[in-house]
C-alpha cells in the first residue's frame, strides 16, 4: 500500500524526567477520587462547545475545568461543592444534572402524571375479576 511506503520512521523521543502532572489530561492517583471526578466531569456542560460534557471536549476551557475539578477533589472538596461553585459562576446551564426546584418540577411531575394517568386508563380496561 502507498501509505506503508510513505511511512515515516518512528520519531526519536528522548525520555524526559517526569514533570508535574497536568490534571486537565491526567487521572488522579486515587481511583475513588478519580471516579468521582469523571462522574462530575460527565455532568458538567462545556461552555464553549455547547452540547458536550467537559469530559468529552478538546476545548481549552473544558480542560481548565477538568483540571480545577481534579485539583479541588484532591484537596478534599466534595463533587457537589464543586458543582455548586460552577453553577454560582455560570448558572444552572453548566450542570447536566438539573436541581430539584420549582422551575424544574415539570421534569419529574410530567412523567409522574403520565404514569398515574396511564395507570388509571389501564385500570379502566381491566375486566372485573370473576370469582372462580
Amino acid at each position: 500500500m502507498r501509505a506503508r511506503s510513505m511511512l515515516v520512521a518512528l520519531a526519536l523521543i528522548v525520555a524526559s524526567p517526569a514533570s508535574a502532572q497536568d490534571y486537565a489530561e491526567e487521572s488522579l492517583a486515587d481511583p475513588v477520587k478519580e471516579a468521582q471526578a469523571v462522574a462530575l466531569m460527565d455532568s458538567i456542560r462545556c461552555v464553549v462547545c455547547q452540547g458536550q460534557p467537559i469530559s468529552g471536549s478538546n476545548a481549552d476551557l473544558a480542560g481548565d475545568m477538568r483540571r480545577m475539578i481534579r485539583e479541588r477533589l484532591a484537596a478534599g472538596d466534595s463533587p457537589e461543592q464543586v458543582r455548586a461553585w460552577l453553577i454560582g459562576k455560570y448558572g444552572d446551564w453548566v450542570s447536566f444534572k438539573p436541581e430539584v426546584k420549582g422551575q424544574t418540577m415539570p421534569l419529574w411531575l410530567v412523567p409522574l402524571g403520565a404514569l398515574v394517568g396511564g395507570g388509571w386508563l389501564v385500570s379502566r380496561r381491566l375486566r372485573p375479576k370473576v370469582p372462580t
Binding site: 456542560r45 438539573p98 422551575q103 410530567v110
Partner: peptide
Amino acid sequence: LYPLILEAATGAKISVGAPY
C-alpha cells in the same frame, strides 16, 4: 424539550443530561 420550553417561557437556561 423542557429546557427549550422553559427558555422560551422564562428565559431561564437549564441543562438536562445523563444524571436526570
